[in-house]
Design a protein around this nucleic acid. Sequence first.
DNA 1: ACGTCATGAAAATCCCCATGAAAGTGGACT
DNA 2: AGTCCACTTTCATGGGGATTTTCATGACGT
Lengths: 142, 142
Amino acid sequence: MKIPMKVDYGVRALVELAMRYGEGQLQTSEIASKQGIPESYLVQLMTTLNRCGLVQSRRGPQGGHKLAMDPSTIDLHMIMTTLDGNISPLDCLTYTTDCIFADCCAQQEIWKSVEEAIENVLANITLEHLAQRQRYLSAQNV
Amino acid sequence: MKIPMKVDYGVRALVELAMRYGEGQLQTSEIASKQGIPESYLVQLMTTLNRCGLVQSRRGPQGGHKLAMDPSTIDLHMIMTTLDGNISPLDCLTYTTDCIFADCCAQQEIWKSVEEAIENVLANITLEHLAQRQRYLSAQNV
DNA sequence: ACGTCATGAAAATCCCCATGAAAGTGGACT
DNA sequence: AGTCCACTTTCATGGGGATTTTCATGACGT
């Protein structure tokens, strides 16, 4: 029941962008060093975030990335689904027809409720939330 | 955010045992065919379940496996932790010292609450629960 | 001696990360 | 103004490592 690195990295990068929202573009290399993310991997993540519309990117000198919307409108559930494909803990839940036992599978309901519990937590956390909390924690630990 | 097959298979096997609790031993091959689990893989799972004390095994003809305790005393959280090692969605949570950002990481709190949400759901489901539900569903779909 | 579990290694698959080339963007220089 | 160059994202490919699955062999109890 692990969270993919992809998601961890992605959230960290987006929080970094959220903390600088409105201050123009941020470059991959800076995000990577600030958040401790392998830069070569982050490059890929940023392009998918761009393709999915969460981030706007510009190439060239003074280029970089910035959030495509206000941090308060992006919640963790959105990020999770765009980065991790579907959030379902088991394929049975998305492709119910694939499972021969789907008709009488008691656990399907359990995994489904696990999924919902996760969604509930994540949907209530926005990037602005995290950015503020991050600023507070940073100030505490000087 | 996937559930390892190990856990899915393990739960299915244990539910099968729970449905026959008190009726003696069940053999790996039968569990495998009934629940659609690769038999050679299930062999490994049953041995770890045996080592962890959830299952009692006997060799020889008419040997097999049975639950070591009453199905009502085994909940999904126990199974999850014994099969999946630790349940934490991110290593940061178990080895907090490994993360240089642990002191001021806003997300750590989020993943922690996700973890708790999952535990809450799983800890309230026992094998007896699942076995009963399974019997009901099987009866419905004849 | 038979049928079962136990154990370890090997094959297949997927995720993380690295590398290199291609393409777009802005600035400087002629 | 036009051309060239430095900078940064984008795209494609491949390797290392962990996980899942299979297979073969050995050990055990009846």
